[in-house]
């Protein structure tokens, strides 16, 4: 079985790995590095449970072949809190809003929200953005509709959406 040697920097820590070329980034994290925060909900890019930040951008890690990203920097849910244990503001907001039940979609929702807010700050519009200049440059200006649209790649079967949206809006600085 063909393998490749690659290096991944995950949550600031460097890992030299010899990987089966068929290994997804998600399986490399979960089965090789024992970083099980990123979840497998579908393995097909259809649920968002596996969302991590790859070189700063949110991706479905089940759709990423690990060997194609030699040298990449990855942030997973385990890397969001401060080293002293202080939670990322989105993590705190999710707890305070009870924005989850079973918690299985939660790491993906939170990583996705981190990436989504960065996209909004960078001025990326979404399909529901009406005024591309005025509405798409400030995360604090994101309406509920914008947040829902931009987060729709992250399914929550427990149906915590009604609490996830205000949790994200809080952190975006809207309220």
């Amino acid at each position: 079985m063909p393998t490749n040697d690659i290096t991944l920097t995950v949550n600031g820590e460097r890992h030299d790995l010899s990987l089966d070329t068929r290994t997804s980034l998600l399986d490399a994290l979960r089965e090789r590095l024992d970083l099980t925060g990123a979840k497998k909900g579908c393995d097909h890019g259809q649920c968002g449970a596996c969302t991590v930040l790859l070189d700063g951008r949110r991706v479905n890690s089940c759709l990423v072949l690990a060997v194609a990203h030699d040298g990449a920097e990855i942030t997973t849910i385990e890397g969001l809190a401060e080293p002293d244990g202080e939670l990322h503001p989105l993590q705190t907001a999710f707890v305070e809003h009870d924005a989850f039940q079973c918690g299985y979609c939660t790491p993906g929702q939170i990583c996705s929200a981190v990436g989504m807010l960065a996209e909004a700050a960078a001025g990326w519009p979404s399909v529901v953005t009406e005024d591309l200049v005025a509405d798409a440059t400030d995360p604090a200006a994101l309406s509920d509709g914008e947040i829902r649209e931009r987060m729709s790649g992250n399914l929550c079967r427990c149906g915590a959406y009604a609490h996830i949206v205000p949790a994200i809006a809080d952190v975006a600085g809207r309220r």
Partner: peptide, 16 residues
Amino acid sequence: TDRVEGREKVTGAARY
């Protein structure tokens, strides 16, 4: 009352 396992779930520490 917030979920007692809330922190584990938002940090990825909760093991399934």
